[in-house]
Design a protein around this nucleic acid. Sequence first.
DNA 1: ACCTGAACACCGTTCAAGT
DNA 2: ACCTGAACACCGTTCAAGT
Lengths: 213, 213
Amino acid sequence: MARPRKPLLSRARIVAAALALIDAEGLTALSTRRLAAELGVSGPSLYNHFPTKDALLDAVADTVIAQVDVTAFADGDWRTGLLGWARSYRAALAAHPHIVPFLAQGPGRRPAGLRMADAAFGGLVDAGWPPAQATRVCAMVRYFVAGSALGSFARGFVDDPGAYDPDTYPHLGQAHLLAEHRRRVDEGAFEAGLLALVDGLALHHPQVRPGGR
Amino acid sequence: MARPRKPLLSRARIVAAALALIDAEGLTALSTRRLAAELGVSGPSLYNHFPTKDALLDAVADTVIAQVDVTAFADGDWRTGLLGWARSYRAALAAHPHIVPFLAQGPGRRPAGLRMADAAFGGLVDAGWPPAQATRVCAMVRYFVAGSALGSFARGFVDDPGAYDPDTYPHLGQAHLLAEHRRRVDEGAFEAGLLALVDGLALHHPQVRPGGR
DNA sequence: ACCTGAACACCGTTCAAGT
DNA sequence: ACCTGAACACCGTTCAAGT
């Protein structure tokens, strides 16, 4: 066919198909050949739109981060801002857990990642946090969110009553039931942990007033 | 050569070489052929010791988790236990960041992973935490530790003063300096976050007394 | 500019063959 | 039991060739 009159591919179409494949079958299932086949073209075609597979993954990661809502910082109360950001951040990542290990390497030069970092850090500083502390708080939230989205805690245990020998693991008698309730367990732990973290921060930093500067 | 009188390989030797390769060049650098070459054998030899590459990674992951010290739970105070566990857990993972995405999928059937989960959960329950809350606390700590070890927060920003346009990202003027101080930033954020989390938990659960049951 | 097939140097894994 | 080389179906990426 060679070059068609209308391009068969676009960066947006490639990114969407890549994310769908990653969500459905995991990061390792994404190969350039497989993705190209899904898009109805041959493997090397992708290289007209992205220089490397890594650059494609960067674009996929950035569309995920672009979903994060940072507007909660607008009202000036840092607790409201932090809670809203963290919940939205977690929701965005948990919707696409297989790309989290790639994402969590940091924003690098990805625009949406930098926009989010800028808004969160700026929101904390504007609310009265000293810059060094604001950096730490951003890091903590990233740790907690990425860790919670990286892999289900509950699903980490196999769903098999005979899997965990009671003599060897005396406290894991109910662990195989976790898989069944994994969503409730994971969301409950995230929410409880987030609230504990925020209240702990407030406790340790009474000089940063709740209502903004 | 065929079969030698003394086996050339052992599971322990393979695991050690695999971990060294992962630490030095990342998870993607670990191929069965490359690892075999490093060990002075041909690729398929590894299949006499592990059924698949995944089983090998399971063994690597379990040796990392085996380094985690859970003895801090012995003294009965849950705060001491939790802090000791979390710090040791983070140290073990941060020493081998490239395997964290694999590790964080959960313990599955890995003995050291289950031993750690059993000790942490059991330690909290013995200290007076209701089982459902103890599960949550274990999940939170896993989230925070895995997220902090997964990738440096500080290294996530490129070390290039011109990388972040001040008009687009008004608050990231100093971000390129993070790379330089990454260890201090990451360890400081982890420690501050851990203390905030523990104090927040204590605040939210006053009925669990600090000294044990 | 944007697609193609052929080609290169890789993968994980299987298997028959050797001792 | 534990190693080997050959083979299979894959990879990411380059490149000359087509329109």
